[in-house]
Design a protein around this nucleic acid. Structure first.
Length: 830
DNA sequence: GTTAGTCATGTTTTT
DNA sequence: CATGACTAAC
């Protein structure tokens, strides 16, 4: 895995950077002061000689030039939102209105921060390096907290727990409280607490009713206990980065005043994604200069489940009196048909500020809707379209498949591997979340901060060294009795007679090893230290001995981890970096189709976008509907809108009539969103091979007229015949009796009369109709790199032996995964 | 304490 | 179906 941006280039990686608080970090540009005076006097249109302003449309320019006072930029999809943000910063800098270090620019994701930095750099050059306050809410939160840690009861070297640590900690608390973990899972508690934190609630602020929601009224106490434990561990979780930041600013007026003085301009990207805590934090800071500019699109708010409040953006004008609102509605990305389809779709939402996107480009091709018999056929159809487009000269890199849920990805991966189509999964399992990486990091954490109990616990017995529950409990008890961290407790126990001889010996070795590694820390580059640690601890060996299919991949990941440590100044710096930047920009190498979730596609664009899985229950997702009701539906619709608007030239929607969920086949109904696409911009096409969608909907689907997707002739399939439909209604009664429950009237009150979706729900679930994928790979000729009998390794399937080769396509008998056909570029010889 | 079974269980999105 | 949690035997 290659990282796209060298961490060295990123000032965020310097945990102890000490940019003077009161002085600009660099010398002023000549003319800066004069420009400043001029700007103060003449706030009107910028003078010529500002090349970065050229090419902005009037609205964009207005947003850029309205530097003073609160500004809300409502930027529809593809209207140049990022451009406005970055140009605005360049503008402020170029007028000398502020030093780079006086601008606070917050984004939501690391990727967005990186991108913004790059683009600003392209405009203003190295001045961007003087912008330490450009980053995500979280990274900026850490930066502030590190400075003033003691004011909120932390020590500056506090550790940041990720979800995994968080849950393990909560598990301990639940056990201590003797709460049944089956009934009240730690995960649920973690979510609950996160929810509170997202809303800016400290334990004492949680209302009695809400606090009672978990474990018969013990939620609030658990939350308080949890916070106490965090403090004791000198640790914070993600939510605390903001919550403690708010507390810091509220309780320390002098600190707040300092930041007010510092931040002359505040810019916020993706404002629609902010939660209450972020809003409060922002508002505190913005009270100083009042020059706050928020950019967002209420139609692209898709993180409500994570606490984002669309209300923040809807309420902006009341929150920041005198705010100027600029609408960007001129779309530069998509064709007319795509835009028209998206606009009509999103118009079904009620709670929105309302924007009308328009473009001056050509109308292009209509959005297509294609039905497939099942998800495999859907994958095959998309694969074929991709190949066809490729032959017509489209680049794979300009195509993307955007799915609702990550389980959908597998079907495509399987299919593409068989086809020999290059693909890239974006945002899949995170590098730093893999067990082996977390284990390795735990070792390093213990070395860097011996008080990191969670890390210690994680690896005391990994690899297995005979220090099991019993031994750990002893260490725990001792630690609690004496009031020291686990490692220290272990050290003391080793000196005593309390442990069993065998245990004592092993533990002594372990403690000694940690001491030794810690001594080496200052003398060795951290990557070398990591290698030594992994080696001497037996961790590497553990995986080398492991014969399971993914062991080799894990070792490879460990190597990659060591490699990725190199650019950092020291171990602490590296650990700091990874606790926040948990993303891995995929290996950008090579032409490949991107596969990703709709969520991770936000902010991206592609020539061609495939949108599979538009079925009721999947998209809109049943859970969103069940748990959030209409708000959930609207968020799902926004997600659909985000999906469609990612496309520049072609948007292709798919749905399957049958999908495998939890291993068994279930029939599905086309998504209501399909009916919400306007006919004028949409073309219904037939899936190749004639296995059209089976018409699981039909009579009875009337809400505002028959569904367009009832038209038999568009599919020319036998499944629309009266006979089939009768069979359908039979099957349906069956399905409902069989417990395929879908609550009646759950959309009651929804103006579209969603109940019609219940009517046509087909119940056909015979598993026999699986259409097996035919292997129609076209050989590229030439002798294979891997003769028959060669042992090979494949990232996904593990080790295996080549049993047949045909051009670049191999048939491999994998040790674990069985026989698969793969492209030779996906395997390596061993 | 470890391991290899079985069993059940749960499945969205993620800074 | 796949992963994880728990149980029973080494």
């Amino acid at each position: 895995m290659t990282r796209t941006s060298g961490p060295l280039a990123d000032p965020w990686n310097r945990p102890d950077d000490d940019i003077p608080f009161d002085l600009p970090a660099h010398t002023p540009r000549p003319g800066g002061i004069a420009a400043r005076a001029r700007a103060a006097a003449v706030p009107g249109p910028a003078r010529s000689g500002a090349p970065y302003l050229d090419g902005l449309n009037p609205e964009q320019r207005e947003a850029v030039e309205a530097t003073e006072g609160p500004v809300l930029v409502l930027a529809g999809a593809g209207t140049g939102k990022t451009r406005v943000l970055t140009t605005r910063i360049a503008h402020i800098l170029s007028l000398g209105l502020a030093w780079p270090s006086q601008i606070l620019a917050v984004t939501f994701t690391n990727k967005a921060a990186r991108e913004m930095k790059e683009r600003i750099g392209a405009m203003v050059g190295e001045q961007v390096e003087g912008m330490p306050w450009l980053g995500t809410f979280h990274s900026i939160g850490v930066r502030m907290l590190r400075r003033h840690a003691e004011l909120v009861g932390l020590k500056s070297g506090f550790t940041i727990l990720d979800t995994d640590d968080q849950i393990r900690l909560l598990k301990q608390l639940l056990q201590a409280e003797q709460i049944d973990e089956k009934r009240w899972p730690a995960r649920l508690l973690a979510n609950t607490i996160d929810g509170w934190k997202n809303r800016g609630l400290t334990p004492d602020m949680v209302s009695a009713g809400e606090g009672a929601a978990f474990a018969n009224g013990r939620g609030q106490k658990l939350y308080a206990d949890y916070q106490a434990r965090l403090k004791a561990l000198n640790a914070v979780d993600f939510g605390d980065l903001l919550l403690e930041g708010i507390r810091l600013l509220r309780e320390n007026p002098d600190v707040l005043a300092e930041y007010h003085k510092r931040f002359r301009y505040i810019l916020v990207d993706e404002y629609q994604d902010t939660n209450v805590a972020q809003y409060l934090w922002l508002r505190l800071l913005a009270q100083g200069s009042k020059n706050v500019c928020c950019v967002g699109d209420d139609d692209q708010s898709i993180y409500g489940w994570r606490g984002a409040e669309v209300d923040n953006i809807l309420r902006f004008e009341t929150d920041f009196p005198g705010a100027k609102v600029v609408r960007l509605e001129r779309n530069y990305r998509s064709t007319g048909h795509i835009l028209g389809a998206a606009a009509h779709l999103i118009a079904h939402n009620e709670g929105r500020l309302g924007k009308t996107l328009f473009s001056e480009g050509e109308s292009g091709e209509k959005v297509t809707v294609t039905g497939a018999w099942d998800s495999q056929e859907e994958a095959r159809a998309i694969g074929e379209e991709i190949e066809a487009l490729q032959h017509r000269g489209h680049s794979l890199a300009q195509m993307a498949i955007l799915v609702r849920a990550s389980f959908q990805m597998r079907e495509f991966e399987d299919r593409f591997v068989t086809m020999g189509l290059n693909y890239r999964v974006i945002g899949g399992p995170r590098f730093y979340e893999r067990a082996e990486i977390r284990d390795a990091l735990a070792y390093l954490r213990v070395i860097a901060s011996p008080a990191d109990d969670l890390a210690f616990e994680r690896i005391v017995n990994v690899p297995k060294r005979g220090l099991g529950d019993a031994a750990l409990r002893q260490i725990h008890d001792h630690a609690r009795a004496v009031g020291v961290p686990l490692v220290e407790a272990a050290r003391q126990l080793v000196g005593s007679e309390e442990l069993k001889p065998k245990v004592r010996l092993t533990l002594r070795d372990l403690v000694a090893s940690f001491d030794r590694w810690r001594e080496q820390m200052p003398n060795l580059p951290q990557s070398q230290l990591a290698e030594i640690v992994l080696d001497e601890s037996g961790y590497t060996e553990m995986w080398q001995k492991d014969r399971s299919a993914d062991a080799a991949g894990r070792l490879e990941n460990l190597k990659e981890l060591v490699r990725s440590m190199e650019p950092f100044e020291n171990l602490v710096g590296f650990l700091e970096h990874i606790s926040l930047v948990m993303d891995t920009e995929g290996s950008g190498a090579g032409e490949a189709v991107s596969i990703m979730t709709l969520h991770s596609a936000k902010g991206l664009e592609f020539d061609v976008v495939f949108l599979p899985g538009w079925e009721e229950g999947l998209f809109p997702h049943q859970r969103a509907l069940d748990e959030q009701g209409r708000a959930g539906l609207e968020e799902e619709r926004r997600l659909a809108y985000v999906g469609v608007t990612r496309a520049r030239r072609l948007a292709k929607v798919f749905f399957a009539s049958n999908r495998r969920i939890h291993g068994s086949w279930q029939s599905s109904v086309p998504s209501r969103f399909l009916d919400e696409l306007p006919e004028a911009h949409v073309e219904v096409t037939e899936s190749r091979g004639g296995h059209g969608w089976g018409g699981a909907t039909s009579a009875g689907r009337y809400g505002y007229g028959p569904s367009r997707f009832d038209e038999a002739q568009t599919f020319g399939s036998t499944y629309s015949t009266p006979g089939w439909q009768r069979a359908q209604s039979h099957a349906q009664t069956h399905a409902q009796a069989g417990g395929a429950s879908r609550r009646e009237g759950q959309f009651g009150g929804f103006s579209d009369g969603g109940s019609r979706y219940n009517a046509g729900r087909g119940g056909y679930s015979g598993g026999g109709r699986v259409i097996e994928g035919q292997l129609v790979a076209s050989s590229t000729g030439g002798p294979s790199r891997f003769p028959i009998g060669t042992r090979v390794f494949h990232q996904k399937f593990g080790y295996g032996e080549v049993v047949a080769a045909e051009g670049n396509k191999l048939t491999v008998q994998f040790d674990k995964a069985g026989e698969k056909r793969v492209l030779d570029t996906y395997v390596e010889g061993v």
